[in-house]
Amino acid sequence: MAINTEKNSYTVIFAIIMVIVVGSVLAFLASGLSTKIKENERFEKQQNILYAMGVNENTPDSGVNFIPTTVVEDQFKDQVKEQYVWVNGELKTDDQAYLIDLKKELKVLKEGGEARLPIFMGERDGQEVYVLPMYGKGLWDAIWGFMAVDKDMVVQGVYFDHKGETAGRGAIIKLRFFMDDFTGESLLEGGSYNGIAVSKTNNDPLNNDKEDNEVDAIAGATITGNGVSAMIKETLKAYRPFLETIRNN
């Protein structure tokens, strides 16, 4: 039996069937894979936090090497001594703190509400470090990361990531040579929390000068670089009350 595919009723029925079929295939797929995807995302967050803390498999000349996902959960329990949330000027322990969505909390904070800001305490070379999550805007989309600071407000390690920065340009913020430059830089300038700026004019491509609160920018990624500077500033603004409590005077 030949079907008349030009009839309006046929078109409508075809469209309905197609939408139902495609919709159910996608829904089935999404629900079937969601546990696995959520697990991957959780592992990634743990890897990122540990990376900033210096727990990674980097060798002197390698790129960014996280610890394997098979051991990340145990390592995270082991290395992160305590997970806190900073609420209303008070530090509370919360062992699910790493699952907090910082983007939402920063929004709450902006609106003057009661934000829950996660903090992770660990150790590096025998001294306590605090890992703070960061969230900001790049050129095309979100950028985020983690920053480990010690009690002198000196950065002990960072990790940056991005959703959609340009490959070969803004996307470089997640490469090791860029992130490594932040280590050793101070968040304090004079007495104030100025953060670390990604600078096109610091004339210090090897980043030998750790006193200038600046790291060398990436060619062709001005806006992403500015986004990183702004993100660090925003994080400091949000976490300043907490940092004051741990800072060595």
């Binding site: 079907i3 595919t5 030009e6 078109t11 075809f14 197609m18 939408v19 295939v25 996608l26």
Partner: peptide
């Protein structure tokens, strides 16, 4: 190809790619 109505073929193609 024999069942897609020609009036909405572009939309049908888009759905296939997107899916």
């Amino acid at each position: 190809r024999n069942v897609i109505p020609s009036k909405i073929r572009i939309i049908a193609q888009l759905i296939v790619v997107a899916t």
